[in-house]
Design a protein around this nucleic acid. Structure first.
Lengths: 338, 338
DNA sequence: CTGAAAGCGCTTACAG
DNA sequence: CTGAAAGCGCTTACAG
């Protein structure tokens, strides 16, 4: 393959028409004998068809994946999972990052549409009116990841239920003064639903007066809000953090302030990063099935392409991970009761 | 844009020929007046040309980026940086993950070549004979990231020097029995050069007898090797880890074994992840400039496309990050001397 | 089961 | 400065 081979070259070398070579690749009728001749040439020259030249094809076998950032543990897991699934099924994954910028995200959507992808998986931090308009205009199947999307298909974490679980856990263990480090409400899944779950979970145990702060998704942001909470409520005895990374920020600030975790302040997060088990004490957290989200997302988009039936909304599982960062006030001598 | 617009549509709507619209996008001669007419229609319909239909174009304005995994902090930084630079310059980044599989990586290279990308940035964990053959066959500019590539252009971390720095640091602080948690030697940069630097740095201080273990890049791998070292040399007083993630594994094992860091065993890594400052004690480590690597890689590939001169090898900087995981035996009362 | 021909959405000499 | 025409590497009816 010293020069780039084309389908015409392969056709000539194998002594067949190029339509036949095309059919060979797209699963059309080709006699076994012809098939073998083509196969031989392809292997000899290591030929791979140019996926982008399939201008007229109904299917491009290209799937676009849009992520808010390439810098996140969770995103890494989701995309890895998608890519594995799709590659297995002979699709090519086109990954685009929006770098937390809505305009860039909209641009990415348009670009992928123009690129004639067969489907788009989008993990957005917020579905805006512009998104809805773009989605409505196109025929291309779209699956929204991690955010609920009423007008279409989505795969979501069970944010409300997870939040409620954690809220109840903190209530049940006898905490009194609770701080919440959340994210902005443009992110409906995490900023609203997860938070609401936490609030409702706490309410079950009579805790209604919590201190709520908001942050972006950064380590620094977590620190800033933790500091604010500590100033407003020096007697805070628990910090619930919308993500593990925010919890990392809380750890940092609490340590600096000379507060012991969990003796003085309990900390809990959402995420279940590997690193969390290394903290002292290990972070109590809740792990969403990110690989599952990627898997179901990929599976669903392929089903949609094949016009199969898919559920409007699929909810992926989560798992509670008990670390040592939450104190049990109710039952100090047997903390494993919970 | 209820249907997909084509250049022909835009041409018709603006009352010009489609060659003119094409020229508009590619910086050819277009009269100001005509330019405005086209501009107006484009904005109205929010048209974006289909990057994949530029079959005949000399330039596709597509740059392929191949990474070993999407699951790494460092890779995330590098790719984010590349994507920002390229987007700024109006190029589209096509990210492909090899998922630590050489065959998949080779496939990715071929696929990108067939896709007619203008250039390829490849961060490989190993350059094999197959790589060299593929690279030699194509005319497409290629920049290798993180590995030295004698036959071409590369951007590398200064692995030897960094290793030597750390080795000398551990020697200087008076350690005696040193374990090294490295990676396999197929990864020349980390598996060989970084290790050699460590060995030479230690030698400067008379330490020649170290216990060397090898691992993949995983948390679990780090644990396994740390355990082995501990068995072989219960009196080990320092563990040098080829990456922070491996150091995390070492922390885990040492904690389990009841060894205090750094009183009983010092630990040091390479990476400089944010999380490392959260460990107790904070991990002493060395941070490579991954954003710089992405930036220089992107800059270099564009220069190559424009047939400008580029250096064969560019070395990105590193920074020593002093945590609290290394004990200074030489001068225990003023540990900040170093 | 196979090939010639038209067409996908764009770019590029070329003639004006 | 602009447009008609040919061509990029593929796919798809269609006729055989």
């Amino acid at each position: 393959m010293t020069k780039k081979m084309t389908m015409a070259d392969i056709a000539e070398l194998s002594g067949v028409g190029k339509s036949t070579v095309s059919r060979f690749f797209n699963g059309g009728y080709v006699k076994q004998e012809t098939r073998e001749k083509i196969q031989k040439i392809i292997e000899e020259y290591n030929y791979k068809p140019n996926a982008f030249a399939r201008l007229k094809a109904k299917q491009s076998r290209l799937i676009g994946v849009i992520v808010p950032t390439l810098n996140s543990k969770i995103t890494g897991r989701v995309v890895t999972s998608i890519d594995r699934y799709l590659r297995e099924k002979n699709y090519t994954t086109l990954i685009q990052s929006s770098d937390h910028d809505i305009d860039q995200e909209l641009e990415n959507i348009q670009r992928l549409i123009q690129m004639n992808v067969d489907g788009i998986l989008i993990s957005s931090i917020a579905i805006t009116k512009d998104h809805r308009e773009l989605f409505a205009e196109t025929q291309i199947p779209i699956v929204v990841l991690a955010q609920e999307y009423e007008e279409g298909i989505s795969i979501i974490d069970d944010d409300y239920s997870a939040g409620r679980y954690i809220g109840a856990y903190i209530g049940k263990t006898g905490h009194q003064k609770v701080g919440y480090i959340g994210v902005y409400e443009t992110d409906v899944a995490v900023g609203i639903r997860r938070k609401q779950g936490v609030i409702d979970g706490l309410k079950e145990y009579g805790i209604t007066d919590l201190i709520i702060g908001k942050s972006d998704y950064s380590f620094i942001g977590g620190q800033t809000v933790a500091r604010e909470i500590l100033e407003k409520a020096p007697d805070v005895d628990a910090m619930i953090c919308a993500t593990d990374r925010l919890a990392f920020g809380a750890y940092k600030i609490l340590q600096k302030a000379g507060k012991k975790i969990p003796e003085d302040v309990s900390v809990v997060g959402f995420g279940g990063y590997d690193e969390s088990t290394l903290l002292t004490p290990e972070l109590t957290t809740l792990k969403f099935d990110s690989y599952g989200m990627g898997y179901f997302g990929a599976e669903t988009i392929l089903k949609m392409i094949q016009k199969k039936r898919v559920s409007k909304k699929q909810v992926v599982d989560y798992k509670f991970i008990k670390g040592g960062s939450v104190k049990n006030y109710r039952c100090a001598e047997s903390p494993d009761l919970l």
